[in-house]
Design a protein around this nucleic acid. Structure first.
Lengths: 151, 151
DNA sequence: CAGAGTCGTGAGCGTCCATCACTATGAGCA
DNA sequence: TGCTCATAGTGATGGACGCTCACGACTCTG
């Protein structure tokens, strides 16, 4: 409990506030597109690894196969993906992005770029550098603490 | 789509990754204490505004009174709060932190301080300054965009 | 004191996300 | 050819959250 603690607390407060704000904003945006957080994760996954059987998605997302069935059902109902026949394994499907699904992911990417512009476009270059350096430092520390992205 | 975009994207990526990481970590910690996100929010609220009738909590948290009933039920069952008689209004209760509830909030605060030390303790002072300046800038921008804390 | 407004709750509903147990179908090998 | 294992689907649960509607209990005001 030394004199730096209040400085750390102030920094952490900002970080946590930002976390909450960004999270809420993200989820609201998704909801407007007809997506839920988990379904969006699945869309990202498909974008990254391409058409995949549900088993693979379950492993990639670290959730039970049954949960994948439900998520895929939802995405099929809302037109973001289809279940295509697997060319080699007639038991399995290839969950595949529809044009709408691809467009959705691309829109998310575009929105993010736009958001980046709004957030940083007016920021002095050196301040942005300072921010990124600080974030990288924090990220590295978190990584060292064993906190890392699940994907 | 100018040359700065990739810089912005890199900065935003870090911010979003941090968001996800901190969020997951927070929720995991809460779960270990037997708390859910909403119940925790309520505990913080009580810490801030003291024993309060459910109506006040509903307004402070911007949720329906009926929802408060459920959250308070949960917190009562798990021993974090009690419903005390309101001294002036026999229709209302004063939702009050139990010793366990107070201890939980204090532990959250202590954990946060400790986390701050771990995160920033080894960071050069000027880098920390740069980070905070950048975060403040972003926060101000968000505020200008209409994104602000609900509380 | 009667009527109107307030506080909290019971009942019911919906969404999201996750689980386990079980089944049908197909793959793959001895 | 059979037998076993793998892939998905269904059904049933469960928890966390949020909502509305209706209502009893109570306060407050005219």
């Amino acid at each position: 409990m030394d004199a730096h603690d209040s400085v750390y607390a102030a920094a952490l407060d900002r970080l946590l506030l930002l976390t909450v704000l960004l999270n809420d904003d993200m989820e609201r945006g998704l909801r407007e597109m007809g997506l839920t957080p988990s379904r969006t994760t699945m869309l990202w996954m498909l974008r990254r690894i391409g058409p995949a059987p549900q088993k693979a998605l379950a492993e990639a997302m670290r959730i039970a196969p049954r949960t994948v069935t439900g998520l895929v059902d939802g995405l099929v109902d809302t037109g973001f993906v289809t279940r295509e026949a697997h060319p080699e394994d007639r038991r399995a499907f290839l969950v595949t992005l529809t044009p709408k699904g691809t467009a959705a992911v691309e829109k998310l990417e575009a929105d993010q770029r736009e958001f980046g512009r709004q957030l940083f476009g007016r920021m002095p270059a050196e301040r942005l550098d300072g921010l990124v350096a600080g974030l990288d430092d924090v990220l590295a520390t978190l990584h060292g603490l064993g906190l890392r992205s699940p994907y």
